[in-house]
């Protein structure tokens, strides 16, 4: 019980600090190069293992190698939606502007991953099923997810006042999050109902030599998300605070020596 209070205060302190634009700008800026570096190294490593080292699949031949981008992108598309909705929730409850900005900047990145999952899934479908589009459960779910993302982005862009827009779009993201499992399972179930036994794209058993590159690529994509999200959020902060003193200090590199 006694430990509870300071811990909570530390958390609130962190949220409070994150809410201060100059602090956020400088603090997160330090991570960006490292995140990009991690992304680059992991991607090169994962692609080398996945595209050149891993053996061909005994059923699908070489085409399964699309998995190393398709599956991480599909994972990211769902993860980013959840993260966006949770940040939106924090933004709605505590009205932290930086959280609003991060939630809203997650949307285009998530939509990009959804698009990648759709396009690569469709390119994977051609050699596997002989057609570019099948109403397979995962592709259909991704398509609905893309619409959810487009709704959030559309609502955010349609409103003039950025903070009000962010709150409205955050609420929409939250409603979408509640619906996401229902949509996911209903689409899955709809698919089995109408197609009987469909061919699944990913086999049930994966050899470790095929699994490692997949995990490395999945982590690489998380680095990409982190780096891209911070980059975008810092730029949005500059844009919104165009008229405030700290933005000039930051871009002229005179932070600290500014005299009012």
């Amino acid at each position: 019980m006694k430990n509870d209070k300071p811990r909570k205060n530390a958390f609130l302190m962190f949220i409070h600090k994150m809410g201060s634009p100059p602090w956020f700008y400088n603090f997160t800026g330090k991570f960006v190069p490292w995140l990009w570096a991690g992304f680059t190294v992991l991607t090169i490593w994962g692609l080398y293992l996945g595209l050149f080292k891993a053996p061909p699949d005994y059923l699908q031949g070489e085409s399964y190698r699309i998995m190393y981008i398709h599956v991480p992108a599909a994972w990211m598309s769902m993860l980013i939606y959840i993260v966006m909705a949770v940040m939106g929730f924090i933004a709605l409850i505590w009205r932290v502007r930086t959280m609003e900005i991060m939630a809203m900047n997650s949307a285009p990145i998530g939509a990009a991953f959804t698009l990648i999952a759709l396009v690569t899934g469709s390119l994977w479908g051609r050699p596997t099923w002989g057609t570019y589009w099948v109403w397979d459960a995962r592709l259909t779910s991704e398509l609905v997810l893309l619409f959810l993302y487009l709704g959030v982005i559309g609502l955010y862009k349609a409103m003039d006042e950025p903070r009000k827009a962010a709150r409205a779009a955050s609420l929409l993201a939250l409603v979408g999050l509640v619906n996401m499992p229902i949509i996911h399972y209903s689409v899955k179930w709809w698919n089995t109902l109408h197609q009987g036994s469909s061919i699944s794209m990913t086999g049930s058993k994966i050899d470790p030599s095929m699994l490692w590159p997949l995990l490395i690529m999945a982590i690489a994509m998380k680095f990409y998300y982190g780096a891209n999200l911070i980059t975008r959020s810092r730029i949005t902060l500059l844009e919104q605070d165009l008229r405030k003193g700290w933005t000039r200090d930051v871009i002229e590199g005179t932070a600290g020596e500014h005299k009012s």
Binding site: V144, F147, L148, L150, G151, G154, L155, A158, M159, K164, A168, L171, L172, V175, G176, N179, I182, I183, S186, V187, W189, W190
Partner: peptide
Amino acid sequence: IGVGLTLSLKRGGQLLSLLVFPLYVPILI
């Protein structure tokens, strides 16, 4: 919910369908 969110927009009606149709998917199914 969608109407509430798009209420202050001049052309909210056009955006509304994009917001609510994905949420209608399970009911349709």
